[in-house]
Amino acid sequence: MRALLDSLYRLSGVLAAVGMVATLVLVASGVLARPLGIYLPGTDDYAGYAMAACGFFALAYTFKHGEHIRVSLLLERVGPRMRAALEWFSLAAGTAVAAMLAFYAVRMVLQSHEFEEISQGVDATPLWIPQLSMAFGSVVLLIALIDDLVMTTLGRAPARLATHSGEAARME
């Protein structure tokens, strides 16, 4: 189970990175195409979708690296029992919000499909396709939060994909 979940988080990280590279390629294509007299319709819309894919796919992957930020001021000052209670509270609240986000993100995709929503830009993309990244990303984020909430409730430490990498620019 652990291995399966971790590969899910890693997979979403890889998909996000593909989104980042695609954003670069699509934004850069404008610079190359113009002097050559080539018209590439819709690249900026596609760049927006690629960026969205990067941000949404990476949600759980980033969470599991402990890199989504929060205010730790209080957490660091209270005793161990209070701290455990706060950790549980923040995970429970986070899970509730993520559940709402995941539910409505999936519903948005279904509605876009049902309404036959098409992008109003030159790209004319059926919107449910790029929106899949938001539905997938927020569902995996929900899974990651439930994962941590269950572990914390059982009194175990939540699993992390990596400890703070030594190469990050840390001042401590």
């Binding site: 980042m20 954003t23 927006g48 960026m51 969205a52 409505y104 519903r107």
Partner: peptide
């Protein structure tokens, strides 16, 4: 709140104006 939340987040997160941000971070 739900449907509006999803649409607002999607539209902001896929907006072309923002694309410079991830690239500069990279």
């Amino acid at each position: 709140p739900g449907d509006g939340m999803a649409v607002a987040i999607w539209s902001h997160g896929s907006s072309w104006t923002l694309t410079a941000l991830p690239l500069f971070l990279w």
